[in-house]
């Protein structure tokens, strides 16, 4: 996106070029108590892109996602999903929370969790049919977890849990996927499996946004970055925005200069 930085007028999204973009955020502020976790952040995610949200711990990356999706209340700001309010575009969006956010001793099998992704399409009252089960199994196959369908979720490794969460989001068959730290604490095999699924989604024209921690894989996995440290530092294509200067500004003293050198940035 090369559009100039725009100023938001109240109740109006000004960026005409991105009117129907998967995600347009203007002046988003979310606070816990009276301390802002995300302060007046603007962002615009173009369709078909794969964006990494990057920033130090406690910089508000997850909160940005949750604020955009209305999981946590917004203090101020405007959010449009495909040019609409989230409530009106909900079935085009799938969210993958951090796997540590739930109790994995919950009485459910892997297949049950994936079926949760179909609640929206099945309705709250109708019963499951073989067709839904097949759909859920297809999603498990895509993340390489079909053999685990009948396992109790508490018996899974961290990486497997993460893939089950991804399968649940796949079951929603959305156009826009938002993932909160999908690679946190997973093994190499899981990371490969998840990345290949995400790239598949992108090749189908879907849009992907990930909260991401590993700076060394940003260029390999993503084509855009959104750098956040409570405020928005920078946003744009990896080649032009993922620079040593921007990273230094995002991380401050917390990122050693040698570390940045190792990234072989443009």
């Amino acid at each position: 996106m090369s559009s100039a930085k725009l100023v938001a007028e109240s109740g109006k999204i000004l960026d005409v070029a991105s009117k129907d973009a998967p995600l347009t955020v203007r002046g988003l502020t979310v606070s816990y108590g009276n301390k802002p976790a995300v302060f007046s952040v603007d962002a615009s995610i173009p369709a078909g892109s794969m964006t990494a949200i990057i920033g130090p711990n406690g910089a508000g990356k997850s909160t940005f996602l949750k604020g955009a999706l209305g999981v946590v209340p917004r203090l101020s700001g405007e959010v449009r999903i495909f040019g609409k309010l989230f409530e009106d575009a909900r079935d085009r969006v799938a969210y993958v929370p951090q796997r540590a956010s739930v109790d994995w001793d919950f009485p459910a099998r892997v297949i049950d969790v994936v079926l949760m992704g179909l609640y929206g399409s099945v309705g709250l009252f109708r019963l499951w049919r073989a067709r839904h089960r097949e759909q859920a199994m297809d999603c498990l196959k895509r993340v390489g977890m079909a053999d685990f369908a009948d396992r109790q979720i508490g018996q899974l490794s961290g990486g497997q849990q993460q893939r089950v969460f991804l399968a649940r989001a796949l079951a929603q068959n959305a156009e826009f996927y938002l993932l909160d730290e999908p690679f946190a604490g997973v093994d190499a095999a899981t990371e490969r499996a998840i990345v290949s699924v995400l790239k598949e989604l992108k090749s189908e024209g879907r849009t992907v946004v990930c909260v991401h921690h590993d700076l060394s894989t940003v260029a390999e996995y993503f084509d855009r970055v959104l750098l956040i440290n409570v405020r928005r530092i920078a946003e744009g294509p990896v080649e032009t925005t993922f620079t040593a200067e921007n990273l230094q500004e995002t991380y401050g003293g917390r990122l050693a200069a040698t570390h940045i050198d190792e990234l072989h940035l443009a």
């Binding site: 909900r90 109790d103 609640y119 649940r168």
Partner: peptide, 10 residues
Amino acid sequence: FDPEYAATTG
């Protein structure tokens, strides 16, 4: 099981 996810599905 997962209140945050539940919120995003409406």
